[in-house]
Simulated scan of single mutants.
Amino acid sequence: MTNPVNPAIAATTPPPVMQARRWLDGVTFSTTKPLINVSQAAPVEAPPKALRQALAEVVLNTPEAHLYGPVLGLPQLRTEVARQWSAAYGGNITDTQVAITSGCNQAFAAAIATLAGAGDEVILPTPWYFNHKMWLDMQGITTRPLPCGTDMLPDPDHAASLITPRTRAIVLVTPNNPTGAEYPAELLRRFYDLAQSHGLALIVDETYRDFDARSDAPHDLFTDPHWSDTLIQLYSFSKAYRLTGHRVGTMVASTSRLAEVEKFLDTVAICPNQLGQHAALWGMQNLSQWLAGERDEILKRRAAIKADFPALAKNGWKLLGCGAYFAYMEHPFEMPSNELAKQLVRQSAVLALPGTMFVPAEDASGARQLRIAFANIDSTGIATLYQRLAGFTI
């Protein structure tokens, strides 16, 4: 007798990054042509030494950091997020409106758990962040795809046409994963007004906010005194301070919603990683200048992606979006991107994710697209990547 499997889990696509890593099995790369891995949007280096030293001090001298902590997170970290967010966005955010989570993916899962159940609907722009779609599928929640335009921006009027009595939320990611698009403040305001007028939640995932090319606040939503009736903001410390393995994220929402979130978090993890929280707090208080340097470097790489792109454009490639960690491209080949990506590993020693991982199966655009996560290759690496893509033939 076969052990039963939850049908919703069975129907959920396997983790895309893990799928892509398996394409490397049995492939040997030479020292003259090593693998260029642009598949995952995560830092590959350890946190800066000063942060590691501070974390070592916590390990040795803060006994309570090894115990269960508050379900909604370290009070000092919640206070620091509220203080810095209020200053950055020009709004009024209190510590009781901040929850710390085990990574931003858990923040999304917790938010959705308080909003929707099986049979409900959530609107996701496409190309989407695949883990968002996976979580909705696991919960039996219907995803209503909202295709972006050629500028990789979603249309609020189109979103309005997708709203039904079962719709519970609209989800936006800016700067966007996978396209890199930075959503204009006016666009976010239009989505906010749309969600507010229909009694929906607007979830804004700002995981990559530290690498936004704009120097001003990316939106003014927190300036609305009633923002917490509509807005749920998500964020990750993983990218800012290279804390991917420590799993620390945050959710900013109404105090009443966080009371519901607490139920989810207590059941799933009891509390966020204590050491990671101390690391995030120390980073927020001490690494602003270092983080500014990290942002400058990412912006230099973004500039290189754009400046060097004519080398690919003359071969029929198109740059659809670029920002934060990502370049989203259209390839010129008849081969669908899910097959092309495998061929690129074997022939060009390049590991990238196909657009088919970011759109519904019936959306033909994904077959022509690739996501390039360029945060871990410098300008020289970008030039080499372009040489290999330009030299690829079927």
Rank of each mutant, 00 (worst) to 15 (best):
M1F: 10
V5E: 14
N6C: 15
I9Q: 12
P15T: 06
M18C: 00
A20K: 04
W23D: 14
G26T: 03
G26Y: 05
F29Q: 01
T32V: 12
L35E: 08
P43Y: 09
P43Q: 11
V44A: 14
A46Y: 02
A46L: 07
L51Y: 08
R52Y: 02
A56F: 00
A56M: 02
N61G: 07
P63A: 06
A65C: 05
A65P: 02
A65N: 04
H66R: 03
V71W: 01
Q76T: 11
Q76V: 06
V81E: 03
W85D: 13
S86D: 10
A87Q: 14
T94M: 05
V98P: 12
T101C: 02
G103C: 08
L115G: 07
A116G: 09
G117N: 13
D120G: 06
E121H: 02
V122I: 13
I123K: 06
F130H: 13
L136R: 07
I141M: 11
P145T: 03
P147I: 05
L153W: 02
L153S: 08
L153C: 08
D155C: 09
P156R: 07
A159M: 09
S161K: 15
S161R: 14
L162C: 06
L162D: 04
T164L: 01
T164G: 03
A169D: 07
V173I: 15
T174E: 10
P175L: 12
N177E: 15
N177V: 14
T179N: 09
P184Q: 11
A185K: 11
A185N: 11
L188E: 14
R189I: 03
R189K: 15
R190C: 00
R190G: 06
Y192C: 11
Y192W: 05
A195G: 08
Q196I: 01
H198V: 00
L200T: 03
L200H: 06
T207R: 05
A213S: 11
D224W: 02
H226E: 11
S228V: 00
S228G: 02
T230H: 04
I232D: 09
S236A: 14
Y241I: 04
Y241N: 08
T244V: 15
R247F: 13
V248I: 13
T250G: 14
M251F: 00
A253H: 03
S254H: 06
R257P: 02
E262H: 07
K263V: 14
L265E: 12
I270S: 13
N273M: 09
Q274A: 12
Q277V: 05
A279S: 12
L281M: 10
G283F: 01
M284L: 15
G293H: 04
R301F: 05
A303Q: 15
I305D: 05
D308K: 15
A313M: 09
L320F: 02
C322H: 04
Y325N: 15
E334W: 02
P336Y: 04
N338R: 07
A341E: 03
R346E: 13
D363S: 10
A364K: 10
A364N: 09
S365D: 09
L370C: 00
I372W: 00
A373R: 00
N376S: 11
D378H: 04
S379C: 06
T380C: 10
G381T: 09
Y386D: 01
L389Q: 05
A390Y: 00
